[in-house]
Design a protein around this nucleic acid. Structure first.
Length: 352
DNA sequence: TATCCGTGGCT
DNA sequence: TAGCCAAGGAT
């Protein structure tokens, strides 16, 4: 006979095994009445969307050191925030981050809404993030459903319906378990369980506080859950990027359009990127110059395609005016402000 | 509902 | 190496 999964059992486990994170208030401190700053919870949750804790930590520290409050962030220039986000990926998050900060200041007096529905109206805040902020920052019994929770619920209930079709079912299971006591700790506990015990591969069931309640454990199916729809193969696209240096050391860079891939980020001027099967991309030099082609190409994989970027370099005189982009003085140019693809291209082209 | 949107670590 | 995966949201 299988046990019933009890939130209390998970909380006991969490009291002993909660991982320290820069934005987290420990279970002991929460019991003493300490609640985290909603600004820091919001910022961390946006950064954590589809992103690992390890990757987020340094960005979180940098953002909160530079912009300690939502008012500070709301007042920041767009280009500063985009540059600070460079390398973290999914750049729409950074654009929405600013929109959200400015909305909180303009429409909510600089204070984050304390309800799920209020949070859900904010840019870049969806069902998961709204529930996470409500639970963690305000201790409201909101149910968080992220990839960890989906996996834990699929295993607890031995649910074989593939994702994303199974999402509503798994959400109902998660809602049924959410406790009225310590909902903030509980939300973090389920996600910690998924991240450290109920892992995608080789789950550590021997250490799991819910093993006695787990239908997948009983059936021996835990390693194959959750089922997922098969993924499509990524096509290969090719393009050309032009890395232009002026004789004074300035680099020719171009701000990408606000929407679409790498939207709002700095990059090297270039051609369209076309599917490899459609031939080779048309040259699109941003300035008149004598071009050298690098033997190495920049390779980078995005969410839905592989890119092979051919690199052209040139040195141009002071008086030469570009048709696209703007020259950035060497003392103002930081490769770390570029998205990873563009930084790879720079690393291949830069003088040693 | 399906597609678009990054990156780095791990196996 | 190539695929998988991570505290999703917008359209």
């Amino acid at each position: 006979m299988r046990d019933i999964a009890e939130p209390e059992a998970l909380l006991v486990w969490y009291d002993r095994h909660a991982r320290a994170m820069p934005w987290r208030v420990s279970p002991a401190a929460r019991k003493a009445g300490v609640l985290p700053d909603p600004y820091r919870i919001w910022l961390s949750e946006v950064m954590l969307q589809q992103t690992t804790v390890a990757a987020v930590k340094s960005y979180f520290e940098a953002f909160t050191a530079r912009w300690p409050t939502v008012r500070d962030l709301a007042a920041a220039p767009d280009v500063d925030v985009m540059a600070a986000w460079a390398g973290l990926g999914y750049y729409a998050r950074a654009r929405n981050l600013l929109k959200c900060a400015r909305a909180v200041v303009a429409d909510h007096g600089g204070v984050f809404p304390d309800s799920y529905s209020g949070l859900l109206t904010l840019p870049g805040v969806g069902p998961y993030t709204a529930a996470a902020i409500a639970a963690i920052a305000y201790d409201e019994p909101a149910t968080v459903v992220d990839g960890n929770v989906e996996r834990v619920m699929a295993r607890l209930h031995d649910e074989h319906t593939p994702l994303p079709q199974a999402k509503p079912i798994l959400t109902r299971h998660a809602e049924a378990l959410t406790p009225a006591q310590r909902p903030g700790d509980y939300a973090q506990a389920v996600m910690d369980l998924g991240a450290t015990i109920c892992t995608p591969k080789r789950p550590a069931c021997g250490l799991c506080p819910w093993r006695g309640a787990c239908a997948a454990w009983d059936a021996g199916t835990q390693a194959e859950l959750p089922k997922k729809a098969p993924k499509k193969k990524k096509p290969v696209r090719t393009g050309i990027a032009y890395l232009v240096r002026r004789v004074d050391g300035a680099w020719l860079l171009e701000r990408r359009p606000d929407s679409g891939l790498l939207g709002g980020m700095l990059g090297w001027p270039g051609s369209d990127w076309i599917d490899q099967t459609l031939g080779t991309p048309a040259e699109a030099p941003p300035i008149r110059a004598e071009w050298k082609t690098l033997s190495a190409e920049a390779r980078h994989t995005f969410t839905h395609f592989h890119l092979r970027l051919s690199l052209r370099t040139a040195l141009v005189p002071m008086e030469r005016a570009p048709e696209r982009g703007e020259f950035v003085a060497p003392e103002e140019f930081r490769p770390a402000d570029l998205p990873t693809l563009m930084r790879k291209a720079f690393d291949l082209a830069r003088p040693q």
